[in-house]
Design a binder for these strands. Sequence first.
DNA 1: CATGAATGAGGATTCATTCAT
DNA 2: CATGAATGAATCCTCATTCAT
Lengths: 211, 211, 211, 211
Amino acid sequence: MSTQQDSPATSSRVQRKRGQRIQKILTTAAELFGERGYDAVSLEDVADRLDVTKGSLYYYFASKEELVTAAIETLGNDWTDRLERLASETGGPPAQRLRTLIHEHVTIAVRDYPEALRLFLVPTKWPEPQRERIKSLRLRHNEVFRVVLEEGVGTGEFVVTSIDTVLQCMHAAMAQAPAWCGPLRGTARARAVGELTDTLMMLTGLRPPRA
Amino acid sequence: MSTQQDSPATSSRVQRKRGQRIQKILTTAAELFGERGYDAVSLEDVADRLDVTKGSLYYYFASKEELVTAAIETLGNDWTDRLERLASETGGPPAQRLRTLIHEHVTIAVRDYPEALRLFLVPTKWPEPQRERIKSLRLRHNEVFRVVLEEGVGTGEFVVTSIDTVLQCMHAAMAQAPAWCGPLRGTARARAVGELTDTLMMLTGLRPPRA
Amino acid sequence: MSTQQDSPATSSRVQRKRGQRIQKILTTAAELFGERGYDAVSLEDVADRLDVTKGSLYYYFASKEELVTAAIETLGNDWTDRLERLASETGGPPAQRLRTLIHEHVTIAVRDYPEALRLFLVPTKWPEPQRERIKSLRLRHNEVFRVVLEEGVGTGEFVVTSIDTVLQCMHAAMAQAPAWCGPLRGTARARAVGELTDTLMMLTGLRPPRA
Amino acid sequence: MSTQQDSPATSSRVQRKRGQRIQKILTTAAELFGERGYDAVSLEDVADRLDVTKGSLYYYFASKEELVTAAIETLGNDWTDRLERLASETGGPPAQRLRTLIHEHVTIAVRDYPEALRLFLVPTKWPEPQRERIKSLRLRHNEVFRVVLEEGVGTGEFVVTSIDTVLQCMHAAMAQAPAWCGPLRGTARARAVGELTDTLMMLTGLRPPRA
DNA sequence: CATGAATGAGGATTCATTCAT
DNA sequence: CATGAATGAATCCTCATTCAT
């Protein structure tokens, strides 16, 4: 009865298709959850934006919670990947590299994931298993910045009271970036992103650029 | 013969009682909503913590939304009042006054209204009327800091790229304070609050104190 | 402690006051219930329109049901009283007297009790005791019309298939009168009431007046 | 190979099933709402009679209001359809056709939709959108009777004071029919319906048939 | 008498989740 | 795989009723 041939070729094409499907779902979910928060988004909402039915989502994810977690995870990993790549490609003194990282991070946040970033900040009371995964995500992400920051402190280029505190402040501020810069367009947005970057660099003890 | 004797007296006593009742509700509500967010808190939760029934809440507030809004408003006003008083009582150069304000703000956040600040930051999609009231609250609150910041910039003591951006970063970071410092106890917490204050002061272009 | 003197004078004055109070309540209640129906009117609504609190109503009536019943009863009795008086004062042939009755009935309905009449028609499932009282009210009220109708049939002036059926149709139509004529003003309303009266008279086998 | 085979077929079968389901709900709802009125019927009641859960109703209708409106609409349209068909099939002079219409209308009311008519009469305060739809329903329904009535008036067969008034009285009386004839059984009911029809025909200026 | 306050039992509505097809 | 359908638990909200003062 079944016309399905599980040849490796088919299987892999199917596999790819499946992967894309899931990616699409995760992106959309992250978007929505970031926009309104976990509780305010129903699976119906997600399904609607994807133009499928609620039932379909359950084929890929066992529960709402699993969906958000996966969304956060994928998104966080992609994001961190990009930053890590950028960090490894960028040379120059720590100050310049940190600036590049911050700028890129804010740009990604504002341009690619308009709202999703907030998901990392708000410590919604996840059940234990999820909490762990998210925590480790945050750690890995944080590490990219910490490395540069520590190097700068090591060379005396940066002067800070507490590296951890600086990192926290940076992330808190960057997470709000979409809310501040998102509504702006074109040059105005670019300038806002620039000012935010400059301002955050001051946390390292540098003076503002044009002052 | 004295059928009127209790008109003004009683009325005012009753009035006072009512005011207290409402305050109690508002505080409790702000607490809960701040802890878990609007959607994650049911009126049952609020009622439970107050040891009354859901129905009673509706005697004072027409809807869940009205309750949160009122809670946010009272809380925000009280908070700003305290900061304004502090600002007017504190002398010295802008740097010192700003530091005092930040320190107090963080302290209040961590000690008195654990988590409640998030209500101001997270842009829960309030219906228009509420949004306006909350916005104006935030503005008034922001003003306290802005005044000092502008003064410092005027005297050249502070050097910043953009006053608005600095304010935004400060508030974003301070709003996370309870999540960072809240779990700590005693000296550890005091030190954390201090480091946060010092770090945020760097946004004004000052070098870290003991570096 | 009590300054209350139960002298007959006081008592009767109090009694009168009480009576007026109750009348006011009943009228208002009948109005509201007639307007929107039993279920759609809350005691709060009644209290609001009377400018008292819900609690006060319970001083005079033990329950919502008792209030409506009393409202219907008073209103029905007053109404029937007026019609009975009118019937006994009016002379002439049955046709003329019936026309007078119908006209007066519609006028009262439209002018004095804009909405309350419907209370008699809609057989809301009252509990037994109430049902009986309302039924007997309706009977007494109906009797005024029946007497004249039967007389006319007796003299051969009226020609009908069934007296009961004619009565039912009349009452059904008259109960809708406020909905039809109520919105009209001045002459327009007077004409509408006139046409309704003429039309209903045709149920007795008379030709329309101006035809 | 036939992975598409069931697209149109299935879809239409599913569609039909859905239609039937909705019809079933609508009928049941109209029944209940007609019996007891909008406020006195809970969705639980409707669900119970359908042997499903409240939640299921919300799968088909977004709110209680939408459900009643739809119920009224379907019911009203079906009803009017039947009358219109009857009107177009019936020949003879206006008097005979009007009598047929009235008789059929009352019969439908008493037999098929006991009590449902009240929904059209009682001006439950619907929100504007619903009110319009119901109003137009009533108009269409009224038209069937008006056409015949006007024709009779045109030929001089009917003599009335006001066509509109006659129509209103007819509908008011017919709406009460279920309350009068419903409790009766067999011949008694048939006779009651007959008497009502005869009586209402008198509104056109005809004398009663066998008098 | 009258009021403010509180209650508890419904009733409307939402939504994650399950499942047959 | 995907969908439509159904469910039931939770949640918001209303309201008749009670009661202390």
